[in-house]
């Protein structure tokens, strides 16, 4: 039995014993998957998939800098960037630059996460934790976090394809926000607010029609949309 099979079987075993997960977002993943899709006749299509995570997603900025430093020019020109939760924030900052300009995004990625460490991102409701537990959609009032996202990312204009994974609380379905979905009603900052709406801690993001949490409760990393985009 090879290692991958063993890992997969162990995972299935764990799932069968799964019980209610609380505080799941306190452990945040910071995984990056970099794919190179090649076909015989076409040039390589590159995907960067950024996993879920909170502040630990700053790791992705550092790792990307390391990759840029150690690879040849053009090797990190990603055609599409996908992200979940904190990885979605990094993805948005990356696609604000054209393919091949990844290095320009890294200081902004680092700065965003530094900002979350130096400013108050959330607070207790007026009635304290009990208020959050019994009357609100989350333990804490994250209006500061929402304002921070809107302020720091309001000027982002995607220059290439992206895919951000969120979960529709009402339907329970995994949903994605892509470049073609954006319009006056569906803005990138709303998708990003959803991406940092950690269930239990913060209320879901509400766009008037649906309520969204970050996508990590379904997929902690969304590789498939990137591959499918390249295969198209």
């Amino acid at each position: 039995m090879d290692l991958l099979t063993k890992v997969y079987i162990n995972y299935i075993k764990i799932l069968t014993r799964r019980f209610i997960i609380i505080m799941k977002y306190t452990i945040s993943s910071a995984v990056m998957i970099l794919l190179g899709l090649t076909t015989v006749e076409a040039e390589t299509c590159k995907v960067l998939a950024l996993s879920g995570g909170g502040q630990s997603s700053v790791f992705q900025a550092g790792a990307l800098q390391g990759i840029l430093d150690s690879t040849a020019n053009g090797d990190t020109g990603y055609d599409i960037v996908t992200g979940v939760a904190g990885g979605a924030i990094n993805a948005a900052l990356l696609v604000d630059y054209s393919k091949g300009e990844e290095s320009s995004a890294i200081p902004r990625m680092k700065s965003f996460w530094q900002g979350t460490a130096t400013q108050t991102m959330y607070q207790e409701w007026l009635g304290g934790l009990l208020d959050g537990l019994l009357l609100e959609g989350g333990l804490y009032d994250d209006s500061n976090l929402k304002a921070y996202i809107q302020t720091t990312l309001k000027d982002v204009v995607p220059k290439r394809e992206f895919d951000i994974g969120v979960v529709d609380l009402l339907s329970g379905k995994y949903d994605t926000l892509t470049k073609k979905d954006l319009d006056d009603q569906t803005t990138l900052d709303k998708g990003l607010i959803s991406s940092l709406s950690f269930a239990g801690y913060f209320p879901p993001a509400d766009d008037g029609k649906a309520k969204f949490y970050d996508g990590a409760s379904v997929w902690n990393i969304n590789i498939f949309p990137g591959i499918n985009y390249c295969l198209e």
Partner: peptide
């Protein structure tokens, strides 16, 4: 598909009871 790199921290990152 060629999965070129899978990048993870070399050791566990500190985690906390609350986000941020």
């Amino acid at each position: 598909v060629n999965f070129r790199y899978v990048v993870t921290p070399s050791k566990s990152l500190q985690w906390n009871l609350t986000p941020f």
